[in-house]
Design a protein around this nucleic acid. Structure first.
Length: 631
RNA sequence: GCCUGGAUAGCUCAGUCGGUAGAGCACGUCCUUGGUAAGGACGAGGUCGUGGGUUCAAUUCCCACUCCAGGCUCCA
């Protein structure tokens, strides 16, 4: 019979298995007529086949999923009483959830890993078993695997597949790698609690996360990357570089910026203000607190009450603002606006407060006191597209300033089948969604359309930026709002003298400044570019005899508007260099006897080391070009 | 909010099977004046997260709370 393998016609005997066509171990599974199958699947006549290896996304999934089975085998042999829940592959590796009397500890992982090693050695085949559902239920009931039984009961098919290695059997759709020996390099990474079905009401299970690779070297690279990420942790760098502290005494999720961190924050804000004024925004400033009445009218009180800080004042409730929009709307509504005034764009670096659940707080990435770089665009329907294009262009220019080059853009639209879930008319949605699409097309940005991901009050564009390690960070969001214009009756007078409802667009480019700075810290690994570095230059005299010259070097730097400091402690130069390097200061100017005689400075650049001596003027010229940052 | 594990000097951590504690780094003083990532000596520094309980005695055992970590959930 004929089959098509990787696009080529070949002749094979009837009853040939996929594995018969495979040479070597790198092939993990195969696509047969579009379906992913095991290698020991039989090939039907005329089948179209494509091999899948670890370099394919699907291959990784199969591999990691098989690794999770190996882990489950190890767990069941060490802890026979542990009940199996689920064990899928994830973006980076796999996990398996178990119900155990006592949750696993870090020490257990070592034991489990060891056992996994033994299982891998045995090269146990993954055998696919097809069974009637009721038989499978019986089987797992006997084994006291209640979670598997529950899963089976949710399956509607009459037959189910199971995979068996020796006496270990697990409900599984598959496919799997041929045998356990294929799993070469693996590591169990962490243990965590997780609810069954992710449901708070359900039992808490013990989850083990792991990762696996076909080569030991790849695993090492991955582990190094994890270690690099740990080294970049903004919480660690934040305290080492004295950028910020979150004080237990002062409250969770509330950030105290130390001078250096505050400098960075202010630099980012100043740059933002400059760009926004140039882009036609008008800065406004609104209070941190407002009467409850305002939040009832905006609808926040009903939808968002649990996340708001409520303060009793006299006989009513005041609320710490969780968002800036109502404030900006009040300013818009303070007088009758003409179509000639539109688009009207208000911007504010507004401090908002949100009562996020304690467990979700995380360094700067999730806080309760948030600085939002908020902007609201009030415009006419026909202005939508142009305005979105302007926002996108502004966003790209600003994010690129920080060295972000790769983005993931999501366009979230409503679910056409559940229109009743959303506010706003068909016409409004069509206009808004089309405006976003046209704007994205005009700017040439690639995006992914996410059906049904829009919020109930309007469609949106979210931009995630990819940092130096390729990790995603949610930053920019551009959202239509069909809710607030109606609730607040925000209108403008058109050419015909009639009042019409405005189109309102929320947008934030950094998103949250706290999160953005956290991201920057990790992106730069604490080594800020010159324009953001709190201290740009450290002047170090080699001995006390150069103190006077070092003082003049410092002064010249300061006169140029540079942020420079002088360390004239009577320490060895190696020690003082170390202190400055640990602080990741971009430039160190070392002055000794030679430099005094020649009126030069010996320049040491962070990350590069000694770049030689040069006249101070030359150095100042070099640095002047670097000073403004990119663009 | 939920689960597990934590909280000891400014930081990183050790320790006390119940009798109020120790290291390294950082900090201060002195010696040293040294040419590209840690010179030496001495010194100061802690109500052992907070509040209660048991006990002659609690940093240690028990309870509650707060905060932190890793997850889960949440993020109109």
């Amino acid at each position: 019979m004929m089959v098509v393998l990787e696009g080529k016609n070949i002749e094979v005997a009837k009853g040939t298995l996929v594995s018969d066509l495979v040479h070597g171990e790198h092939v993990l599974a195969a696509y047969m007529n579009g379906h992913l199958v095991d290698l020991n699947a039989e090939i039907p006549d005329g089948a179209e086949l494509r091999f899948v290896d670890f370099s394919h996304k699907e291959g990784k999934k199969v591999y990691w999923h098989s690794a999770s089975h190996v882990m489950a085998m190890a767990v069941k042999s060490l802890f026979p009483e542990a009940k199996l829940a689920i064990g899928p592959s994830i973006d980076q590796g796999f996990y398996y959830d178990f119900d155990t009397e006592k949750p696993f500890s870090q020490d257990d992982l070592v034991l489990i890993e060891k056992k996994m090693g033994e299982i891998v050695q045995k090269k146990m085949p993954f055998q696919r078993v097809v069974m009637r559902k009721d038989e499978a239920i019986k089987l797992f009931s006997q084994k006291n695997e209640s979670y598997k039984v529950e899963l089976l009961q949710e399956i509607e098919d009459e037959h189910v597949t199971l995979y068996q290695n020796d006496d270990f059997i697990d409900l599984c759709r598959g496919p799997h790698v041929p045998h356990t020996g294929v799993i070469h390099a693996f590591k169990l990474l962490s243990v965590a609690g997780a609810y069954w079905h992710g449901d708070v009401e359900q039992p808490m299970l013990s989850r083990i996360y792991g990762i696996a690779f076909t080569q030991k070297a790849d695993l090492n690279v991955y582990l190094e990357k994890l270690e690099d990420a740990r080294q970049r942790d903004h919480r660690k760098l934040g305290s080492e570089l004295e950028l910020f502290t979150i004080f237990e005494e002062a409250g969770a999720g509330l950030v105290y910026w130390h001078p250096k961190g505050a400098f960075i924050k202010r630099s980012i804000e100043e740059y933002w203000i400059e760009e926004h004024i140039a882009a036609g925004y008008q800065l406004v400033s609104t209070p941190h607190i407002a009467r409850g009445h305002l939040w009832h009218r905006s609808g926040h009180y009903d939808y968002y009450r649990d996340n708001m800080f409520v303060v009793p004042v006299d006989k009513e409730e005041y609320i710490l603002k969780p968002m800036n929009c109502p404030g900006h709307i009040l300013i818009f509504k303070s007088k009758v606006r003409s179509y000639k005034d539109l688009p009207l764009k208000f911007a504010e670096l507004g401090q908002v407060y949100r009562h996020e659940l304690s467990g979700t707080l995380h360094g700067l990435l999730r806080v309760r006191g948030i600085t939002i770089d908020d902007g609201h665009i009030f415009c006419q329907p026909q202005q939508i597209e142009d305005e979105i294009v302007k926002v996108l262009e502004l966003t790209m220019r600003m994010l690129r300033k920080y060295g972000f080059e790769n983005f993931k853009i999501d366009l979230s639209v409503r679910d056409e089948h559940k229109k009743d879930k959303y506010l706003g008319t068909d016409e409004e949605w069509a206009q808004a969604e089309q405006g976003l699409i046209s704007a994205l097309q005009r700017t040439g940005l690639e995006y992914e359309k996410q059906e049904g991901e829009a919020v109930f009050y309007g469609p949106k564009i979210d931009i995630k930026l990819l940092d130096a390690l390729g990790r995603e960070w949610q930053a920019t969001t551009i959202q239509f709002d069909f809710n607030l214009p109606k609730r607040f009756k925000i209108e403008y007078m058109d050419q015909g003298g009639k009042l019409k409802e405005v189109v309102a667009i929320h947008r934030a480019i950094y998103g949250s400044l706290e999160r953005f700075i956290g991201c920057l810290i990790e992106h730069y690994k604490g080594s800020f570019p010159l324009w953001l570095a709190p201290i740009q230059i450290m002047v170090l005299p080699i001995t006390d005899k150069q103190a006077v010259y070092a003082g003049t070097v410092l002064q010249e730097c300061l006169n140029m508007g540079l942020r420079a400091e002088l360390n004239n402690k009577s320490e060895r130069i190696g020690q003082k260099i170390r202190e400055a390097e640990v602080q990741k200061i971009p430039y160190i100017l070392i002055v000794g006897k030679k430099e005094v005689e020649n009126s030069t400075v010996a320049v040491r650049k962070h990350g590069k080391g000694d770049i030689g001596a040069m006249p101070l003027k030359d150095f100042l010229n070099v640095i002047k070009e670097e000073q403004g940052g990119d663009n």
